[in-house]
Design a protein around this nucleic acid. Sequence first.
RNA 1: UGGGGCGUGGCCAAGCGGUAAGGCGCGGGACUUUGGCUCCCGUAUUCGGAGGUUCGAAUCCUCCCGCCCCAACCA
Length: 559
Amino acid sequence: MDDTTTEPTAGLDFIRTIITEDRVSGKHEGRVATRFPPEPNGYLHIGHAKSICLNFGVAREFGGTCNLRFDDTNPAREETEFVEAIKDDVRWLGFDWDNLHFASDYFEQLYAYGVQLIRDGCAYVDSLTADEIRSSRGTLTEPGRESPHRGRGVDENLEMFRRMRAGEFEDGAHVLRARIDMASPNINLRDPVLYRIRRAHHHRTADAWCIYPLYDFAHPPSDALEHITHSLCTLEFEAHRPLYDWLVNNLTVPARPRQIEFARLNLTYTVMSKRRLLELVQERHVNGWDDPRMPTIVGMRRRGYTPEAVRNFCDRIGVAKRENMVDVAHLEHAVREDLNKRSPRIMGVVDPLRVVLDNYPEDLTETFEIANNPEFPSTGTRRVPFARELFIEREDFMEDPPKKFFRLAPGREVRLRGAYFVTCVSVVKDARGAITELRCTYDPATRGGDAADGRKVKATLHWVAVKTSIEAEIRLYDRLFTAETPGAEHDYREDLNTDSLQVRMARLEPSAAAAAPGDRFQFERLGYFCVDPDSTDRRLVFNRTVTLKDSWARFSAGA
RNA sequence: UGGGGCGUGGCCAAGCGGUAAGGCGCGGGACUUUGGCUCCCGUAUUCGGAGGUUCGAAUCCUCCCGCCCCAACCA
């Protein structure tokens, strides 16, 4: 509080620091306007979420605005399907744009800007082929060569550009180029191409145009037209900034936005490029863009992640300029933290092992009242039936347990959550020696789960009564890749986790029957699960969003 | 290689000349009808390296090293 007045930028990331300083100095009249500019050629992923949280977050924090602008300057790969999906994703994350724009809305204006550059001697129509342009661009160490058409007169350029638009030339026959400096050490300034002829159906302008501006040319004036103050983008555009500024300076634009670059998000065990995500979908390594294993917003949504968790994650990883590789554990932590607070608990057994209570009446069924969330009594209770035959988790029993195993074992007593203490008296096996059933006794004096004599027990197990349990399909997801950096040493496909999805038929307490797609639960001791839209009236399908932290699993795996 | 950027603990990340925040992870403990949650404690004598300036440097200067981006009519 006090320190924000004395040190207004303390603790802020470098972008918020710049914005704070700009407001203090009165730049842009103190306004803050950002934009999130996706290309509608794929689904948004967690990396985009970082950008969305930054752009919309900054606008929100500084009382500014944030537009959603589709960068649709390449009709060959952009589709309406993606624009709708992107809008959904932004809204799902909890943001709303002040204005919705498309770069294609500016095509007429951009064309006029092209004309202006020609008139000012700042651009020319080149008739070299793409290959010729490439080979004359020079290399990192050698300057480029000027095109023989670089000296075309203004009138001829104007006429050629008009005819390009009119469709009088073949695709690729000519391009509009900025006249900057073929010897610039910054390759992006060696007369970059501004417009190309490309007869392709555009998702919004249809066939109205056969010439399309390139990103480098379209973006700066688009920002300016929207009076964007801070144009935030990722590091790879850093070398383009001189071109950005050159255009803002040479065009008659209504504002002077500033481009600021930050480091994109990289996540361990995750692949983030659109190309790879597309391949995962097309090659059927996953079941679509919304496969819960995908780092896409739709995938995470289906997996059961909450927008709050994703936002908290983005806030916590921060924004800086250094390359980073964020541990997925950060994301999982954010998810658990949020889900722990909001998820009602239920019991479900994913790998059932039958338990028979020898001393429990054959046809008695009791009902226990169990808290939906012990940490929040206000969330109420539910009724869970209990009977002589139960299922417990197979891994909660060991015939010959190691020292640190606290769960059920021959002769050992444990608590069945909310019900009774039970003691294992014998193990039933089949002909091959596999355990098929446990015979136990229960202590009627521990009804509800507490022993009147103060006796303690080292473990509490989840359970389900055989006859009242319902069956459900459970999809257990693991990370999609086994390598921290997929593709670091060979094709990323070789790092695919062949066991990233396990489908199980589980037994759930009957209260789960009322669950509807999207509902989230904590299956006690197992993890957070949400109901998948694949669910039908006959069978519920649950996705495991994330496991609970499990120090026993960590210990036993390391032992 | 020319240009542009970046190097603070295992992973993020503050720090902006006054003697290394915080989070994640990890280790230990308390509590516990989830081996969950929560709560404590611990986890960089040191900031890519070497010099220099200074009473004092992660912060300033010099040189060196490493990593990333740019040679699409992609964004």
